[in-house]
Nucleic acid binder design. Structure first.
Lengths: 253, 253
DNA sequence: TTGCTCCTCACGTCACGTGAGGTGGC
DNA sequence: TTGCTCCTCACGTCACGTGAGGTGGC
Protein backbone atom coordinates (compact mmCIF):
# COMPACT_ATOMS: atom_id res chain seq x y z
CA UNK A 1 0.00 0.00 0.00
CA UNK A 2 2.83 2.36 -0.73
CA UNK A 3 2.18 5.55 -2.53
CA UNK A 4 3.03 5.28 -6.22
CA UNK A 5 2.67 1.52 -6.22
CA UNK A 6 1.67 0.05 -9.58
CA UNK A 7 -1.41 -2.10 -9.97
CA UNK A 8 -1.08 -5.70 -8.77
CA UNK A 9 -3.29 -8.57 -9.88
CA UNK A 10 -4.50 -11.61 -7.94
CA UNK A 11 -4.75 -15.02 -9.60
CA UNK A 12 -8.47 -14.69 -10.17
CA UNK A 13 -8.30 -11.18 -11.56
CA UNK A 14 -5.42 -11.93 -13.90
CA UNK A 15 -6.91 -15.22 -14.97
CA UNK A 16 -10.21 -13.69 -15.90
CA UNK A 17 -8.69 -10.92 -17.96
CA UNK A 18 -6.25 -13.15 -19.78
CA UNK A 19 -8.54 -16.06 -20.43
CA UNK A 20 -6.78 -18.63 -18.25
CA UNK A 21 -8.05 -20.38 -15.13
CA UNK A 22 -6.78 -19.92 -11.58
CA UNK A 23 -5.64 -23.53 -11.68
CA UNK A 24 -3.52 -22.82 -14.73
CA UNK A 25 -1.71 -19.96 -13.01
CA UNK A 26 -1.13 -22.13 -9.94
CA UNK A 27 0.20 -24.85 -12.22
CA UNK A 28 2.59 -22.47 -13.98
CA UNK A 29 3.84 -21.39 -10.57
CA UNK A 30 4.44 -24.96 -9.42
CA UNK A 31 6.21 -25.85 -12.67
CA UNK A 32 8.48 -22.85 -12.40
CA UNK A 33 7.23 -21.08 -15.52
CA UNK A 34 5.73 -18.10 -13.83
CA UNK A 35 6.01 -17.38 -10.13
CA UNK A 36 4.51 -14.12 -8.91
CA UNK A 37 7.12 -11.67 -7.65
CA UNK A 38 5.01 -10.74 -4.64
CA UNK A 39 2.77 -12.35 -2.06
CA UNK A 40 0.19 -10.90 0.30
CA UNK A 41 0.66 -11.35 4.05
CA UNK A 42 -1.71 -14.29 3.93
CA UNK A 43 0.39 -15.97 1.25
CA UNK A 44 -1.72 -15.12 -1.79
CA UNK A 45 -0.15 -14.60 -5.20
CA UNK A 46 0.20 -11.05 -6.46
CA UNK A 47 1.33 -10.44 -10.05
CA UNK A 48 3.35 -7.39 -11.09
CA UNK A 49 3.70 -5.92 -14.56
CA UNK A 50 6.89 -7.93 -15.10
CA UNK A 51 5.07 -11.16 -14.31
CA UNK A 52 2.24 -10.25 -16.61
CA UNK A 53 4.58 -9.66 -19.51
CA UNK A 54 6.03 -13.10 -18.89
CA UNK A 55 2.51 -14.52 -18.99
CA UNK A 56 1.92 -12.66 -22.24
CA UNK A 57 4.97 -14.34 -23.74
CA UNK A 58 3.82 -17.74 -22.46
CA UNK A 59 0.35 -17.43 -23.94
CA UNK A 60 1.68 -16.11 -27.23
CA UNK A 61 4.12 -18.98 -27.67
CA UNK A 62 1.55 -21.50 -26.47
CA UNK A 63 -0.89 -20.29 -29.10
CA UNK A 64 1.67 -21.38 -31.67
CA UNK A 65 1.80 -24.88 -30.23
CA UNK A 66 4.97 -24.90 -28.19
CA UNK A 67 5.20 -27.07 -25.08
CA UNK A 68 5.59 -25.50 -21.67
CA UNK A 69 9.04 -27.06 -21.40
CA UNK A 70 10.14 -25.33 -24.60
CA UNK A 71 8.59 -22.08 -23.51
CA UNK A 72 10.30 -22.16 -20.14
CA UNK A 73 13.70 -22.01 -21.82
CA UNK A 74 13.09 -18.89 -23.81
CA UNK A 75 11.12 -16.55 -21.63
CA UNK A 76 12.73 -13.17 -21.37
CA UNK A 77 12.62 -11.14 -18.19
CA UNK A 78 12.02 -7.58 -19.20
CA UNK A 79 14.40 -4.97 -17.93
CA UNK A 80 13.74 -2.04 -20.21
CA UNK A 81 10.82 -0.77 -22.23
CA UNK A 82 12.97 -1.12 -25.36
CA UNK A 83 13.17 -4.84 -24.76
CA UNK A 84 9.41 -5.12 -24.53
CA UNK A 85 9.03 -3.09 -27.70
CA UNK A 86 11.50 -5.37 -29.45
CA UNK A 87 9.69 -8.55 -28.44
CA UNK A 88 6.36 -7.04 -29.44
CA UNK A 89 7.71 -6.25 -32.87
CA UNK A 90 8.87 -9.86 -33.16
CA UNK A 91 5.40 -11.02 -32.22
CA UNK A 92 3.86 -8.71 -34.77
CA UNK A 93 6.08 -10.20 -37.46
CA UNK A 94 5.04 -13.72 -36.56
CA UNK A 95 1.37 -12.73 -36.65
CA UNK A 96 1.93 -11.18 -40.06
CA UNK A 97 3.41 -14.49 -41.22
CA UNK A 98 0.39 -16.30 -39.89
CA UNK A 99 -1.92 -13.95 -41.75
CA UNK A 100 -0.11 -14.66 -44.99
CA UNK A 101 -0.44 -18.38 -44.43
CA UNK A 102 -4.17 -18.08 -43.74
CA UNK A 103 -4.62 -15.95 -46.83
CA UNK A 104 -2.92 -18.66 -48.84
CA UNK A 105 -5.33 -21.25 -47.50
CA UNK A 106 -8.34 -19.02 -48.09
CA UNK A 107 -7.42 -18.37 -51.68
CA UNK A 108 -6.71 -22.05 -52.28
CA UNK A 109 -10.08 -22.98 -50.76
CA UNK A 110 -11.70 -20.47 -53.06
CA UNK A 111 -10.08 -22.05 -56.08
CA UNK A 112 -11.06 -25.54 -55.00
CA UNK A 113 -14.66 -24.50 -54.40
CA UNK A 114 -14.72 -23.11 -57.90
CA UNK A 115 -13.34 -26.31 -59.31
CA UNK A 116 -15.87 -28.43 -57.42
CA UNK A 117 -18.72 -26.32 -58.74
CA UNK A 118 -17.24 -26.77 -62.15
CA UNK A 119 -16.42 -30.49 -62.23
CA UNK A 120 -19.03 -31.60 -59.72
CA UNK A 121 -16.29 -33.61 -58.00
CA UNK A 122 -13.18 -33.32 -55.92
CA UNK A 123 -10.21 -35.65 -56.13
CA UNK A 124 -8.64 -37.32 -53.13
CA UNK A 125 -5.36 -35.64 -53.84
CA UNK A 126 -6.81 -32.16 -53.83
CA UNK A 127 -8.28 -32.84 -50.40
CA UNK A 128 -4.89 -33.92 -49.18
CA UNK A 129 -3.39 -30.80 -50.71
CA UNK A 130 -5.64 -28.64 -48.57
CA UNK A 131 -4.51 -30.44 -45.46
CA UNK A 132 -0.87 -30.12 -46.38
CA UNK A 133 -1.44 -26.39 -46.66
CA UNK A 134 -3.26 -26.19 -43.34
CA UNK A 135 -0.62 -27.96 -41.29
CA UNK A 136 2.47 -26.63 -43.06
CA UNK A 137 5.03 -27.85 -40.52
CA UNK A 138 4.82 -24.84 -38.28
CA UNK A 139 7.37 -22.42 -39.67
CA UNK A 140 7.60 -20.79 -36.30
CA UNK A 141 10.37 -22.99 -35.02
CA UNK A 142 12.64 -20.04 -35.64
CA UNK A 143 10.77 -18.35 -32.82
CA UNK A 144 12.57 -20.51 -30.31
CA UNK A 145 15.92 -19.47 -31.72
CA UNK A 146 14.89 -15.87 -31.70
CA UNK A 147 13.80 -15.98 -28.12
CA UNK A 148 16.15 -18.59 -26.70
CA UNK A 149 19.26 -16.71 -27.62
CA UNK A 150 20.66 -15.10 -24.53
CA UNK A 151 22.44 -12.54 -26.64
CA UNK A 152 19.15 -10.91 -27.50
CA UNK A 153 19.58 -8.33 -24.81
CA UNK A 154 23.01 -7.46 -26.18
CA UNK A 155 21.57 -7.23 -29.65
CA UNK A 156 18.86 -4.91 -28.48
CA UNK A 157 21.25 -2.59 -26.73
CA UNK A 158 23.37 -2.52 -29.88
CA UNK A 159 20.39 -1.63 -32.00
CA UNK A 160 19.48 1.10 -29.62
CA UNK A 161 22.63 3.05 -30.40
CA UNK A 162 21.44 4.18 -33.77
CA UNK A 163 17.80 3.84 -34.58
CA UNK A 164 16.59 6.92 -36.38
CA UNK A 165 13.41 5.10 -37.45
CA UNK A 166 12.34 4.32 -33.91
CA UNK A 167 13.16 7.83 -32.84
CA UNK A 168 11.05 9.26 -35.63
CA UNK A 169 8.06 7.21 -34.55
CA UNK A 170 8.49 8.19 -30.93
CA UNK A 171 8.28 11.81 -32.05
CA UNK A 172 5.19 11.18 -34.14
CA UNK A 173 3.39 9.45 -31.31
CA UNK A 174 4.25 12.28 -28.96
CA UNK A 175 2.80 14.72 -31.44
CA UNK A 176 -0.31 12.58 -31.93
CA UNK A 177 -1.10 12.45 -28.24
CA UNK A 178 -0.41 16.17 -27.88
CA UNK A 179 -2.74 17.07 -30.74
CA UNK A 180 -5.49 14.92 -29.31
CA UNK A 181 -5.11 16.40 -25.84
CA UNK A 182 -5.14 19.89 -27.26
CA UNK A 183 -8.47 19.04 -28.89
CA UNK A 184 -7.27 19.67 -32.44
CA UNK A 185 -9.83 18.65 -35.05
CA UNK A 186 -8.42 15.73 -37.10
CA UNK A 187 -10.08 17.15 -40.19
CA UNK A 188 -8.59 20.59 -39.70
CA UNK A 189 -5.62 21.78 -41.71
CA UNK A 190 -3.26 21.13 -38.81
CA UNK A 191 -4.73 17.68 -38.33
CA UNK A 192 -4.42 16.79 -42.00
CA UNK A 193 -0.87 18.05 -42.12
CA UNK A 194 -0.01 15.69 -39.32
CA UNK A 195 -1.86 12.85 -41.05
CA UNK A 196 0.27 13.37 -44.14
CA UNK A 197 3.44 13.11 -42.05
CA UNK A 198 2.14 9.95 -40.40
CA UNK A 199 1.31 8.44 -43.78
CA UNK A 200 4.75 9.25 -45.11
CA UNK A 201 6.28 7.56 -42.09
CA UNK A 202 4.23 4.44 -42.74
CA UNK A 203 5.45 4.34 -46.31
CA UNK A 204 9.04 4.53 -45.13
CA UNK A 205 8.64 2.12 -42.24
CA UNK A 206 6.68 -0.39 -44.28
CA UNK A 207 9.49 -0.76 -46.78
CA UNK A 208 10.30 -4.43 -47.16
CA UNK A 209 7.50 -5.34 -44.77
CA UNK A 210 4.59 -6.12 -47.02
CA UNK A 211 2.21 -6.81 -44.19
CA UNK A 212 2.82 -3.50 -42.51
CA UNK A 213 1.00 -1.25 -44.93
CA UNK A 214 -2.03 -3.51 -44.85
CA UNK A 215 -1.83 -3.57 -41.09
CA UNK A 216 -1.95 0.19 -41.07
CA UNK A 217 -4.84 0.29 -43.48
CA UNK A 218 -6.72 -1.98 -41.14
CA UNK A 219 -5.92 0.39 -38.32
CA UNK A 220 -9.01 1.90 -36.86
CA UNK A 221 -11.40 -0.60 -38.37
CA UNK A 222 -10.97 -2.96 -35.45
CA UNK A 223 -10.84 -0.36 -32.71
CA UNK A 224 -14.31 -1.27 -31.55
CA UNK A 225 -13.06 -4.69 -30.57
CA UNK A 226 -10.27 -3.30 -28.45
CA UNK A 227 -10.87 -3.81 -24.74
CA UNK A 228 -11.59 -0.93 -22.37
CA UNK A 229 -8.18 -1.26 -20.78
CA UNK A 230 -6.60 -0.07 -24.02
CA UNK A 231 -7.22 3.35 -22.56
CA UNK A 232 -6.04 6.52 -24.24
CA UNK A 233 -4.65 4.57 -27.17
CA UNK A 234 -8.14 3.49 -28.10
CA UNK A 235 -9.51 6.99 -27.89
CA UNK A 236 -6.66 8.52 -29.83
CA UNK A 237 -6.92 5.92 -32.56
CA UNK A 238 -10.64 6.05 -32.87
CA UNK A 239 -11.26 9.75 -32.29
CA UNK A 240 -8.26 11.09 -34.09
CA UNK A 241 -6.49 8.75 -36.48
CA UNK A 242 -9.58 7.03 -37.83
CA UNK A 243 -11.28 10.33 -38.62
CA UNK A 244 -8.09 11.89 -39.89
CA UNK A 245 -7.38 9.10 -42.35
CA UNK A 246 -10.95 8.92 -43.52
CA UNK A 247 -10.78 12.50 -44.68
CA UNK A 248 -7.20 12.14 -45.88
CA UNK A 249 -7.99 9.33 -48.30
CA UNK A 250 -11.25 10.93 -49.38
CA UNK A 251 -9.36 14.07 -50.37
CA UNK A 252 -6.66 12.05 -52.10
CA UNK A 253 -9.02 10.41 -54.57
CA UNK B 1 -7.75 -53.84 -57.34
CA UNK B 2 -10.80 -53.10 -59.42
CA UNK B 3 -10.51 -51.06 -62.53
CA UNK B 4 -11.51 -47.46 -61.90
CA UNK B 5 -10.79 -47.66 -58.18
CA UNK B 6 -9.90 -44.36 -56.55
CA UNK B 7 -6.70 -43.90 -54.61
CA UNK B 8 -6.69 -45.36 -51.09
CA UNK B 9 -4.35 -44.31 -48.30
CA UNK B 10 -2.82 -46.38 -45.51
CA UNK B 11 -2.42 -44.92 -42.01
CA UNK B 12 1.21 -44.10 -42.54
CA UNK B 13 0.72 -42.46 -45.90
CA UNK B 14 -2.25 -40.40 -44.80
CA UNK B 15 -0.61 -39.47 -41.52
CA UNK B 16 2.50 -38.18 -43.20
CA UNK B 17 0.65 -36.03 -45.71
CA UNK B 18 -1.74 -34.58 -43.16
CA UNK B 19 0.72 -33.98 -40.37
CA UNK B 20 -0.71 -36.46 -37.88
CA UNK B 21 0.89 -39.61 -36.48
CA UNK B 22 -0.17 -43.17 -37.12
CA UNK B 23 -1.05 -43.42 -33.45
CA UNK B 24 -3.44 -40.48 -33.79
CA UNK B 25 -5.32 -42.12 -36.64
CA UNK B 26 -5.52 -45.37 -34.67
CA UNK B 27 -6.81 -43.40 -31.71
CA UNK B 28 -9.48 -41.65 -33.79
CA UNK B 29 -10.58 -45.04 -35.04
CA UNK B 30 -10.84 -46.50 -31.54
CA UNK B 31 -12.73 -43.44 -30.28
CA UNK B 32 -15.20 -43.67 -33.13
CA UNK B 33 -14.29 -40.35 -34.74
CA UNK B 34 -12.91 -41.71 -37.94
CA UNK B 35 -12.99 -45.36 -38.91
CA UNK B 36 -11.65 -46.24 -42.34
CA UNK B 37 -14.35 -47.52 -44.69
CA UNK B 38 -12.11 -50.27 -45.98
CA UNK B 39 -9.58 -52.78 -44.74
CA UNK B 40 -6.97 -54.85 -46.51
CA UNK B 41 -7.14 -58.64 -46.34
CA UNK B 42 -4.60 -58.57 -43.55
CA UNK B 43 -6.76 -56.18 -41.54
CA UNK B 44 -4.89 -52.93 -42.29
CA UNK B 45 -6.74 -49.62 -42.45
CA UNK B 46 -7.43 -48.12 -45.87
CA UNK B 47 -8.84 -44.60 -46.12
CA UNK B 48 -11.12 -43.50 -48.94
CA UNK B 49 -11.83 -39.96 -50.12
CA UNK B 50 -14.88 -39.81 -47.87
CA UNK B 51 -12.79 -40.68 -44.83
CA UNK B 52 -10.19 -38.12 -45.75
CA UNK B 53 -12.76 -35.37 -45.98
CA UNK B 54 -13.92 -36.32 -42.48
CA UNK B 55 -10.32 -36.07 -41.30
CA UNK B 56 -10.08 -32.67 -42.94
CA UNK B 57 -13.09 -31.51 -40.94
CA UNK B 58 -11.62 -32.95 -37.73
CA UNK B 59 -8.28 -31.20 -38.16
CA UNK B 60 -9.90 -27.93 -39.13
CA UNK B 61 -12.16 -27.88 -36.08
CA UNK B 62 -9.34 -29.06 -33.83
CA UNK B 63 -7.16 -26.18 -35.00
CA UNK B 64 -9.80 -23.89 -33.54
CA UNK B 65 -9.59 -25.57 -30.18
CA UNK B 66 -12.60 -27.84 -30.10
CA UNK B 67 -12.46 -31.10 -28.16
CA UNK B 68 -12.73 -34.41 -29.97
CA UNK B 69 -16.06 -35.04 -28.21
CA UNK B 70 -17.48 -31.79 -29.60
CA UNK B 71 -16.11 -32.55 -33.03
CA UNK B 72 -17.59 -36.01 -33.09
CA UNK B 73 -21.10 -34.56 -32.86
CA UNK B 74 -20.85 -32.33 -35.87
CA UNK B 75 -18.91 -34.18 -38.49
CA UNK B 76 -20.74 -34.32 -41.77
CA UNK B 77 -20.60 -37.32 -44.04
CA UNK B 78 -20.32 -36.00 -47.54
CA UNK B 79 -22.79 -37.26 -50.08
CA UNK B 80 -22.50 -34.72 -52.86
CA UNK B 81 -19.82 -32.41 -54.18
CA UNK B 82 -22.12 -29.47 -53.43
CA UNK B 83 -22.00 -30.37 -49.76
CA UNK B 84 -18.23 -30.36 -49.75
CA UNK B 85 -18.19 -27.03 -51.55
CA UNK B 86 -20.59 -25.62 -48.97
CA UNK B 87 -18.49 -26.74 -46.01
CA UNK B 88 -15.36 -25.39 -47.65
CA UNK B 89 -16.99 -22.02 -48.10
CA UNK B 90 -17.90 -22.08 -44.39
CA UNK B 91 -14.29 -22.85 -43.56
CA UNK B 92 -13.10 -20.05 -45.76
CA UNK B 93 -15.38 -17.63 -43.92
CA UNK B 94 -14.02 -18.71 -40.55
CA UNK B 95 -10.47 -18.29 -41.78
CA UNK B 96 -11.34 -14.82 -43.02
CA UNK B 97 -12.67 -14.00 -39.54
CA UNK B 98 -9.44 -15.24 -38.02
CA UNK B 99 -7.43 -13.07 -40.39
CA UNK B 100 -9.40 -10.01 -39.31
CA UNK B 101 -8.76 -10.82 -35.68
CA UNK B 102 -5.03 -11.20 -36.28
CA UNK B 103 -4.93 -7.95 -38.21
CA UNK B 104 -6.56 -6.26 -35.24
CA UNK B 105 -3.89 -7.62 -32.92
CA UNK B 106 -1.09 -6.65 -35.29
CA UNK B 107 -2.31 -3.09 -35.60
CA UNK B 108 -2.77 -2.82 -31.85
CA UNK B 109 0.74 -4.15 -31.27
CA UNK B 110 2.03 -1.58 -33.70
CA UNK B 111 0.32 1.21 -31.80
CA UNK B 112 1.61 -0.06 -28.47
CA UNK B 113 5.15 -0.33 -29.78
CA UNK B 114 4.89 3.26 -30.89
CA UNK B 115 3.65 4.32 -27.50
CA UNK B 116 6.44 2.48 -25.71
CA UNK B 117 9.05 4.15 -27.87
CA UNK B 118 7.38 7.40 -27.06
CA UNK B 119 6.80 7.14 -23.31
CA UNK B 120 9.64 4.75 -22.57
CA UNK B 121 7.17 2.74 -20.52
CA UNK B 122 4.19 0.45 -20.80
CA UNK B 123 1.39 0.27 -18.25
CA UNK B 124 0.15 -2.95 -16.72
CA UNK B 125 -3.29 -2.36 -18.11
CA UNK B 126 -2.09 -2.00 -21.67
CA UNK B 127 -0.33 -5.35 -21.37
CA UNK B 128 -3.56 -6.88 -20.16
CA UNK B 129 -5.37 -5.24 -23.04
CA UNK B 130 -3.14 -7.05 -25.52
CA UNK B 131 -3.92 -10.35 -23.87
CA UNK B 132 -7.64 -9.67 -23.88
CA UNK B 133 -7.36 -9.08 -27.61
CA UNK B 134 -5.33 -12.23 -28.16
CA UNK B 135 -7.68 -14.59 -26.40
CA UNK B 136 -10.98 -12.99 -27.34
CA UNK B 137 -13.23 -15.83 -26.18
CA UNK B 138 -13.12 -17.80 -29.39
CA UNK B 139 -15.93 -16.42 -31.49
CA UNK B 140 -16.01 -19.67 -33.37
CA UNK B 141 -18.54 -21.28 -31.08
CA UNK B 142 -21.04 -20.60 -33.83
CA UNK B 143 -19.13 -23.16 -35.86
CA UNK B 144 -20.63 -25.93 -33.80
CA UNK B 145 -24.12 -24.68 -34.50
CA UNK B 146 -23.34 -24.37 -38.15
CA UNK B 147 -22.04 -27.88 -38.41
CA UNK B 148 -24.12 -29.59 -35.77
CA UNK B 149 -27.41 -28.77 -37.36
CA UNK B 150 -28.76 -31.81 -39.11
CA UNK B 151 -30.83 -29.62 -41.36
CA UNK B 152 -27.70 -28.43 -43.12
CA UNK B 153 -28.16 -30.93 -45.87
CA UNK B 154 -31.70 -29.73 -46.38
CA UNK B 155 -30.49 -26.16 -46.44
CA UNK B 156 -27.90 -26.99 -49.04
CA UNK B 157 -30.38 -28.70 -51.30
CA UNK B 158 -32.67 -25.68 -50.96
CA UNK B 159 -29.89 -23.32 -51.91
CA UNK B 160 -29.05 -25.42 -54.89
CA UNK B 161 -32.36 -24.70 -56.54
CA UNK B 162 -31.43 -21.18 -57.48
CA UNK B 163 -27.82 -20.16 -57.32
CA UNK B 164 -26.93 -18.04 -60.29
CA UNK B 165 -23.69 -16.92 -58.60
CA UNK B 166 -22.36 -20.43 -58.18
CA UNK B 167 -23.38 -21.29 -61.71
CA UNK B 168 -21.53 -18.26 -63.05
CA UNK B 169 -18.35 -19.32 -61.27
CA UNK B 170 -18.64 -22.87 -62.49
CA UNK B 171 -18.77 -21.48 -66.01
CA UNK B 172 -15.76 -19.25 -65.46
CA UNK B 173 -13.70 -22.08 -64.06
CA UNK B 174 -14.62 -24.27 -66.98
CA UNK B 175 -13.49 -21.53 -69.34
CA UNK B 176 -10.27 -21.01 -67.37
CA UNK B 177 -9.26 -24.65 -67.58
CA UNK B 178 -10.22 -24.77 -71.24
CA UNK B 179 -8.12 -21.72 -72.10
CA UNK B 180 -5.14 -23.14 -70.25
CA UNK B 181 -5.44 -26.51 -71.94
CA UNK B 182 -5.74 -24.82 -75.31
CA UNK B 183 -2.45 -23.06 -74.57
CA UNK B 184 -3.90 -19.54 -74.84
CA UNK B 185 -1.41 -16.88 -73.77
CA UNK B 186 -2.72 -15.12 -70.62
CA UNK B 187 -1.32 -11.85 -71.92
CA UNK B 188 -3.04 -12.16 -75.28
CA UNK B 189 -6.20 -10.27 -76.12
CA UNK B 190 -8.33 -13.35 -75.54
CA UNK B 191 -6.59 -13.98 -72.24
CA UNK B 192 -7.03 -10.42 -71.05
CA UNK B 193 -10.66 -10.42 -72.07
CA UNK B 194 -11.20 -13.45 -69.88
CA UNK B 195 -9.26 -11.81 -67.03
CA UNK B 196 -11.58 -8.82 -67.18
CA UNK B 197 -14.60 -11.11 -66.86
CA UNK B 198 -12.98 -12.90 -63.94
CA UNK B 199 -12.23 -9.61 -62.22
CA UNK B 200 -15.79 -8.43 -62.70
CA UNK B 201 -17.04 -11.65 -61.14
CA UNK B 202 -14.80 -11.10 -58.12
CA UNK B 203 -16.20 -7.63 -57.67
CA UNK B 204 -19.73 -9.01 -57.70
CA UNK B 205 -19.02 -12.05 -55.58
CA UNK B 206 -16.99 -10.08 -53.05
CA UNK B 207 -19.93 -7.83 -52.30
CA UNK B 208 -20.47 -7.82 -48.55
CA UNK B 209 -17.45 -10.04 -48.05
CA UNK B 210 -14.64 -7.66 -47.31
CA UNK B 211 -12.03 -10.38 -47.01
CA UNK B 212 -12.79 -11.84 -50.38
CA UNK B 213 -11.28 -9.15 -52.54
CA UNK B 214 -8.07 -9.24 -50.52
CA UNK B 215 -8.11 -12.99 -50.73
CA UNK B 216 -8.25 -12.72 -54.47
CA UNK B 217 -5.50 -10.13 -54.59
CA UNK B 218 -3.33 -12.54 -52.64
CA UNK B 219 -4.13 -15.19 -55.18
CA UNK B 220 -1.07 -16.33 -57.00
CA UNK B 221 1.38 -14.86 -54.54
CA UNK B 222 1.27 -17.97 -52.37
CA UNK B 223 1.12 -20.51 -55.15
CA UNK B 224 4.71 -21.50 -54.56
CA UNK B 225 3.74 -22.80 -51.14
CA UNK B 226 1.00 -24.99 -52.52
CA UNK B 227 1.87 -28.68 -52.31
CA UNK B 228 2.53 -30.76 -55.39
CA UNK B 229 -0.75 -32.59 -54.96
CA UNK B 230 -2.60 -29.39 -55.81
CA UNK B 231 -2.14 -30.58 -59.37
CA UNK B 232 -3.63 -28.75 -62.32
CA UNK B 233 -5.08 -26.07 -60.06
CA UNK B 234 -1.57 -24.99 -59.15
CA UNK B 235 -0.45 -24.86 -62.74
CA UNK B 236 -3.52 -22.99 -63.91
CA UNK B 237 -3.24 -20.46 -61.11
CA UNK B 238 0.45 -19.91 -61.49
CA UNK B 239 0.81 -20.18 -65.22
CA UNK B 240 -2.36 -18.48 -66.24
CA UNK B 241 -4.09 -16.38 -63.61
CA UNK B 242 -0.97 -14.95 -62.00
CA UNK B 243 0.45 -13.82 -65.34
CA UNK B 244 -2.92 -12.64 -66.58
CA UNK B 245 -3.56 -10.44 -63.59
CA UNK B 246 -0.05 -9.06 -63.55
CA UNK B 247 -0.54 -7.66 -67.01
CA UNK B 248 -4.15 -6.71 -66.31
CA UNK B 249 -3.29 -4.48 -63.39
CA UNK B 250 -0.24 -3.07 -65.13
CA UNK B 251 -2.40 -1.96 -68.03
CA UNK B 252 -5.04 -0.57 -65.71
CA UNK B 253 -2.69 1.92 -64.07
C1' DT C 1 -20.47 -12.41 10.48
C1' DT C 2 -21.28 -13.50 5.65
C1' DG C 3 -19.83 -14.49 0.97
C1' DC C 4 -16.36 -14.78 -2.05
C1' DT C 5 -11.60 -15.70 -3.19
C1' DC C 6 -7.60 -18.15 -2.57
C1' DC C 7 -4.62 -21.94 -0.42
C1' DT C 8 -2.60 -26.87 -0.82
C1' DC C 9 -2.94 -31.79 -1.53
C1' DA C 10 -4.55 -35.47 -4.44
C1' DC C 11 -6.84 -37.97 -7.76
C1' DG C 12 -9.07 -37.67 -12.56
C1' DT C 13 -8.92 -36.79 -17.59
C1' DC C 14 -8.05 -35.75 -22.37
C1' DA C 15 -5.29 -36.70 -26.39
C1' DC C 16 -2.27 -38.83 -27.48
C1' DG C 17 3.32 -40.94 -26.98
C1' DT C 18 6.09 -44.89 -26.31
C1' DG C 19 7.74 -49.21 -26.22
C1' DA C 20 6.62 -54.64 -26.36
C1' DG C 21 5.78 -58.49 -29.12
C1' DG C 22 3.86 -60.09 -33.33
C1' DT C 23 2.15 -60.04 -38.41
C1' DG C 24 1.55 -58.05 -43.50
C1' DG C 25 3.12 -56.96 -47.95
C1' DC C 26 6.34 -55.47 -51.83
C1' DT D 1 14.39 -63.60 -47.06
C1' DT D 2 14.96 -58.81 -45.67
C1' DG D 3 13.27 -54.30 -44.29
C1' DC D 4 9.62 -51.59 -43.54
C1' DT D 5 4.86 -50.86 -42.24
C1' DC D 6 1.13 -51.95 -39.54
C1' DC D 7 -1.42 -54.55 -35.76
C1' DT D 8 -3.09 -54.67 -30.69
C1' DC D 9 -2.44 -54.29 -25.78
C1' DA D 10 -0.76 -51.55 -22.01
C1' DC D 11 1.47 -48.23 -19.41
C1' DG D 12 3.34 -43.27 -19.53
C1' DT D 13 2.81 -38.24 -20.00
C1' DC D 14 1.52 -33.47 -20.65
C1' DA D 15 -1.42 -29.75 -19.20
C1' DC D 16 -4.34 -29.06 -16.76
C1' DG D 17 -9.73 -30.09 -14.33
C1' DT D 18 -12.14 -31.24 -10.27
C1' DG D 19 -13.45 -31.74 -5.87
C1' DA D 20 -11.96 -31.88 -0.54
C1' DG D 21 -11.05 -29.36 3.44
C1' DG D 22 -9.33 -25.14 5.23
C1' DT D 23 -7.96 -19.95 5.45
C1' DG D 24 -7.84 -14.65 3.83
C1' DG D 25 -9.73 -10.29 3.19
C1' DC D 26 -13.31 -6.53 2.17
Amino acid sequence: LENNEEKLYSVGELGQRCGVTVRTLQYYDKEGLLSPSRYSEGGRRLYTREDIFLLQQILFLKSFGFSLADIRDCLMKTESAKEIAFLFSQQREVIQEQIKKLEGIASFLFQVIGEINNCGEIGTEKLVAIMELMQQKNPYAFLLRYFKNDDIKTIISTINIDQPVEAAWAGLFEELFALNRAGVDPESEQGQEFTAKWWAAIQTYAKGDSGMTESMFQMGTDVDNWPESAGELKIVTKEFLAKAFEKYFKDKN
